[in-house]
Design a protein around this nucleic acid. Structure first.
Lengths: 149, 149
DNA sequence: AATCATACTAACCAAAAAGAGAGTGTAATA
DNA sequence: TATTACACTCTCTTTTTGGTTAGTATGATT
């Protein structure tokens, strides 16, 4: 009765083709290893604590375990060690142990860590620039939702 | 006996001062609201699925639910809807529903989404540039660890 | 002799996130 | 009449994550 049905043939076929093309890419020049690591790295690095520590080490050049702990304030020891270990493993920071009592361990950024924090600048800039825009979008969305119900 | 103990006064004081200064910042010009949202946004936006969807929509300009699902391959329906909703809420994508049977919903990037993906370029570039460096760092680290044990 | 400082590790537990699978509505099609 | 297509939602289970607490080593300090 109503004109609600849309015949499947015309653009569906287009879409199917498009999907097929994407699933059998020809001009995709990205090494999957690269893609995987990129995703992985971004996921890792975009972690809350990693970002904060990165920031702190950009500002301070060298910090000890408890200094970091106090500066961050809310992080648990477990998370701090864990994050530091992963950052060290990825080559973002160095960890130097001084054989003294009580123990002393210093963390500082590597070149890699420094360039990463620079690379993240774009996102920080975007976020600060578009703060209002995102807030507005959220308000609009939430308003619409509550009206819908 | 051994010279392992390091007197606490000289640089400890420096450090303490440094900590104090950081905890009572003077020249920190960042609005805490901004800071919070920036962290929040980065956390949200740096999410694995969000990034992938962003990428796909940069390439395709318009995709339907199942198209996205097939292109991504490994995402669950739940995660896909969830991520899409959040992206819509943040104003990164638009969602247009066509009142047909079977249902048809199209997702596309907004300006905001586009600029965000551009902002992320830096991180992608960094990740691709430093792929080898990170891999090597990991190998070195893992080697050291296993030797330690 | 007890305590402190530092930088952790290990064990345990709760909470949050993610995945799997079934179900929904409507109309066309086989 | 059963099945299919699409874009979901709901519920249940599993996995991951994060916090809490206790413990370790060692020499100096009280």
């Amino acid at each position: 009765m109503s004109a609600r049905f849309k015949p499947p043939t015309p653009e569906q076929i287009e879409k199917s083709k498009a999907i097929y093309d994407r699933q059998h890419p020809v001009n995709e020049t990205v090494d999957p290893r690269v893609e995987k690591l990129v995703e992985d790295l971004i996921g890792r690095v975009a972690d809350k604590w990693t970002m904060i520590i990165l920031e702190l080490l950009v500002d301070h050049e060298s910090l000890r375990f408890t200094q970091l702990s106090k500066l961050i304030g809310t992080i648990s020891q477990k998370m701090l060690t864990q994050t530091l270990r992963l950052m060290e493993r990825d080559g973002l920071i160095t960890r130097t142990v001084y054989p003294v009592v009580p123990p002393k361990v210093e963390y500082r950024l590597t070149e890699l860590g420094l360039t990463l924090s620079a690379a993240f600048c774009g996102v920080w800039v975007w976020a600060t620039d578009n703060l209002k825009a995102v807030e507005n979008a959220r308000k609009r969305f939430d308003g619409k939702i509550s009206k819908d119900q």
